[in-house]
Design a protein around this nucleic acid. Structure first.
Length: 207
DNA sequence: AGCACGATTGCCT
DNA sequence: GGCAATCGTGCTT
């Protein structure tokens, strides 16, 4: 069951935390690649020095952040990687949540081909490395700028509740809040605890 | 038109 | 732990 638009149309920090445990799905020619979201980061618009929309910056790249919530903001970084975000809160409030890591759920054969160019089985190390970072998960799910602006309640790229109802209703994990990664330039925002991940999950990025 | 750099990753010492 | 890879983007000239 896909998340309703109202899920995204709320306070971005709440959306970020509640995205943990949900399933991100990319459907490529009928084959679904699925991962459970285990790590995210919130970017809070004009007053967040780490955000692409800091100080109201609005360009062709980040235009999607200024649109309605519940859409994908995908950008290209370091000349070789992509990162995928969920646009949140109100229209015209340029806020988003970066998906930083997934626990592989389905379509793992296709993920392995996209990431490592090899067939299953993977080593334990490769398996843990499949989606344990924002660039890695985009490579594994073949998410590119072609996916920028997609409706996350659509058919191509979407987010669902986990299939086990109880899992979504109960809290079966603890959430850790920590400083965000890779934003050393962001001055006072460097220490904001807006990175959230599932405590103890082996697929979270870093060690 | 030119240029510095990035919401990263993986390889090397 | 250090650092190269690699190029689109945003800002300056």
């Amino acid at each position: 069951m896909k998340l309703p638009k109202s899920f995204y149309h709320r306070n971005t920090l709440d959306v970020a935390k509640e995205l943990l445990g949900k399933y991100l799905v990319h459907n490529i020619e009928g084959v679904e690649r699925v991962g459970k979201i285990v790590e995210v980061e919130a970017y809070l618009g004009p007053h967040d020095k780490a955000a692409h929309s800091y100080n109201g910056r609005r360009t062709p790249r980040n235009e999607v952040m200024y649109g309605p919530p519940g859409y994908a903001y995908v950008y290209f970084i370091y000349g070789m990687y992509h990162c995928v975000n969920v646009v949140t809160n109100d229209r015209e409030k340029p806020e988003a949540v970066l998906i930083r890591a997934l626990e592989p759920v389905a379509g793992i054969k296709e993920m392995a081909l996209a990431r490592f160019g090899k067939e299953l089985p993977l080593t334990d190390r490769e398996y843990r490395n499949l989606c344990s970072g924002p660039g890695k998960l985009c490579q594994a799910l073949s998410i590119t700028r072609e996916d920028n602006g997609l409706d996350l309640s659509g058919k191509k790229l979407y987010i669902t509740y986990p299939p086990d109802e109880r899992e979504s209703r109960e809290k079966r994990f603890e959430i850790v809040a920590a400083p965000r990664v890779g934003i050393a330039y962001a001055e006072e925002a460097v220490h904001y605890p807006w990175r959230f991940y599932i405590k103890g999950n082996p697929f979270v990025s870093k060690k």
